[in-house]
Design a protein around this nucleic acid. Structure first.
Lengths: 192, 192
DNA sequence: CCCATGTGAGACATGACTGTCTCACCATGG
DNA sequence: CCATGGTGAGACAGTCATGTCTCACATGGG
């Protein structure tokens, strides 16, 4: 909500449309362009003026998801302090993007044959590096590969997002549930 | 109306079609009825004779997934011995159905609307009861709710299935990765 | 042998979504 | 004041999956 002048340049509007689309498609991944437009409070014509088509919209959402992931990764300072704490910071910082990630996570299977955005590989590498650092530092167990831990994080984020979405879980528990399960597991830990 | 040979022949064909469809839709959730038919080695007309439409096919797949889950739950003997071991047995037994489950898990059409299959609630309850038993017995930590642990199990199964599907993980690691992460988490456990 | 049943192939109509277009409207800036 | 440009509404054709239909064929039983 800033100066009116920005609205003419589509930057603010575009972001709003993108986030509305993300929120809608997270709930209903098969939503129509018309539904996306209505959810954003604009007409289908305007939606189509900003995004050439459904494919372009999904690509833009993918770019948004990647950007938010990168931002969360930066904010979490993955190289600082214990890896365990870095994981907690990461889960906390990525919470707001979890819904969008859940949508992209299932949509990505669709682009099987196509070229897929290299941004995901970068993100995978950064998260994997965090888990590897934890393993090398003796914090994390070594029988679970960094690649699997990364994938598991995605899966848990998606599960958490859907759970909150469906009302079966409280948003305030999101970070704790995911981080604690990922780090500590279900077994009760003996106090040292 | 029923002749023994007739019934048996249809049953076998139907099961084969169902499993082919499950395998295909796991990889490509938007596959056409024509593609489903070709994958099963039958024509679209015959596919339509067995399943009134795409919706009926998905519902049949849902019933199959529920049946396989129930079978895995029975085979895992959730009430016997330590809950930890029961979880391991369950993960191992449900592995073969994980791909189908991952497909159904993302088919949110099944979960919106009022007429969602009650079989899922039964399965949720049985798995939740297992986690609750582990908590009451002092095996599992109590700050992670049974409902969340159940949802997390679904998410990890889906992640594992997709990882194996995309070739980023070995099928032989499936059970170990999921069960160990779910039970023990990423943190290295001090030897007692 | 003949007939019945299941099947495959394909035509056909239907509906839904998409992408493109036009046109009237209205707020802003000159 | 008018000119501009973005917008909403709607028309339009094209595309694709679906559901239904017909018909020829083959396999198997009476």
């Amino acid at each position: 909500m800033s100066h009116m002048g920005y609205r003419r340049l589509m930057a603010v509007d575009r972001d709003h449309v993108l986030r509305s689309a993300a929120a809608l498609l997270t709930r209903k991944s098969t939503a129509t362009m018309d539904e996306v437009a209505k959810a954003a409070g604009i007409s289908r014509a305007t939606l189509h003026r900003q995004f050439a088509g459904r494919d372009a919209l999904v690509r833009a959402l993918e770019a948004l998801g990647i950007a938010e992931c990168e931002a969360a990764l930066d904010a979490a300072r993955l190289d600082d302090g214990p890896a365990e704490d870095a994981v907690r910071r990461l889960v906390h910082g990525i919470e707001s993007a979890a819904g969008l990630l859940a949508f992209l996570y299932t949509e990505n299977q669709l682009f099987e044959g196509e070229e897929q955005n290299a941004g995901w590989a970068t993100i995978d590498d950064r998260i994997s590096a965090l888990f590897r650092r934890g393993q090398l530092g003796g914090e994390f167990r070594i029988d679970l590969t960094p690649a699997w831990l990364t994938e598991a994080l995605y899966g848990l984020l998606a599960s958490g997002a859907w759970m909150v979405q469906s009302g079966k879980g409280a948003p305030k528990d999101f970070t704790h549930m995911i981080a604690e399960l990922l780090l500590g597991g279900a077994l009760r830990r003996e106090e040292p």
